[in-house]
Design a protein around this nucleic acid. Structure first.
Lengths: 231, 231
DNA sequence: TCGATGCTACGGTCGCTTCCGAAGCATCGC
DNA sequence: GCGATGCTTCGGAAGCGACCGTAGCATCGA
């Protein structure tokens, strides 16, 4: 199979509304059952089954059986990145109409949520900007970098920053997704910060959605240690 | 229209083999006529016309009329980046079979070519590695950064590096496309280097393809000034 | 002015894929 | 063991989209 044909195949898999909904739901990095994906996509279980089989065969999602449930997740980080970049284009091309009206149902999603392996939403943006403000990271249009001081700072807070060799220091990148038009922190640093935030109880998952809640303790840490201004 | 629906729409546009071929051809950043794209895609002009109309309506390509020709190009850099990321996934998921056998027809393409606005192929990789070797840039898995010395070095060679404010210094990122599995230089620095290379006559376009030829002068500059080892 | 070229608009055919109902298989709880 | 739950397979219906032939419009060169 030629390179272009595989390209078209991948795109076509993401190009069906039902499958797009499923991939979208998997963007938070968790593993979801076929039934859950069936509900988010709004199609019957048997239709969902077919879609998931195609996604799995192509290698876009990986499946893990647990009892009578089958858990599906995005197979690789590069797939999450691809979905991100498509969402970026979709946002760019979106006519300006009603950029603001996102129902109250989505308020918690806008405040804080996971984006594959890192934090997004108002919280994600506020943290990225606070870190940049304090010169702990440097953010550019295409990439970002952790400074020496930033590494020390993050480690002090228990964030598992990898070995800060030259190449590893450059390990964050901006990531735009649908609700925010400003960069938040992805890459290995973003993932480590997200992991640490769950572990330390700064944030916690909300009832099986992408949204996360900021705990009182987290709010305090984010404000006092990071200097992040949250509404 | 909901966010997911637009996502699916964009993906579906890239998911047709004929349109995928056209987008693939446009990845070098040049503007191509409907007829050229028709030949690339292997469909009749009237079919091509329909596809291009859809791509233009969606905003993926922009059209410019010149006499009886209509020139099409990718509308925004973010679209090129999206196509890149899809190609990346396609490469990741590709079974290992025949990773090496790319016909002699493609030898010049593999040596050096444009990738939207920057250089790819063996040349692109060699330049990126030489710059990293000399500490002019620092490359990480997700991002890259130009050093102070790198800015001076590039400016001395006539590369139009933007104002090196904090945020602007972070302006290159690795980009993998189909033939090389190693990073080459994208982002504004990559684009500026590519522009300068054409301007200074280090490289020149080959008969209307993505491939570029390295001139004797270019070969000398790349070797002596950049320290890039070329076959 | 006239033919050639580049592109687009329209209409009809054909093939693919999405979808669901019905049925079947494994697993869990009792 | 027995019903309930979660998921898959099979089959058929319906709809959409890609494709080309024909025709038409604008532009270029002579």
């Amino acid at each position: 199979m030629t390179s272009t044909a595989r390209f078209a195949e991948i795109s076509a898999l993401a190009g069906d509304p039902a499958r797009a909904s499923m991939l979208h739901a998997l963007m938070d990095g968790r593993a979801l059952t076929a039934g859950e994906l069936s509900r988010v996509a709004g199609v019957t279980p048997q239709t969902t089954s077919g879609h998931l089989a195609r996604l799995a065969t192509a290698g876009l999602v990986s499946v893990e059986q647990q009892g009578r449930h089958r858990y599906h997740r995005l197979a690789t980080p590069s797939i999450a990145r691809m979905l991100e970049s498509i969402m970026q284009v979709a946002a760019d091309l979106e006519p300006q109409r009603r950029r603001l009206s996102v129902g109250p149902r989505d308020a918690s999603l806008r405040l804080a949520r996971t984006c594959y392996d890192h934090l997004a939403g108002t919280l994600g943006v506020a943290l990225a900007e606070a870190l940049a403000q304090a010169s702990h990271i440097e953010l550019g249009p295409d990439a970002g970098m952790v400074t020496e001081g930033g590494i020390a700072f993050l480690r002090q807070l228990g964030v598992a920053v990898e070995d800060p060799s030259k190449s590893r220091r450059i390990a964050c990148r901006p990531c735009l997704d649908w609700s925010e038009r400003r960069a938040h922190l992805a890459g290995s640093i973003g993932a480590a910060l997200c992991t640490r935030s769950f572990e330390a109880g700064w944030i916690r998952r909300l009832d099986g959605t992408r949204a996360v809640a900021i705990t009182p303790k987290g709010r305090q840490v984010f404000a006092e240690r990071f200097g992040a201004v949250l509404p």
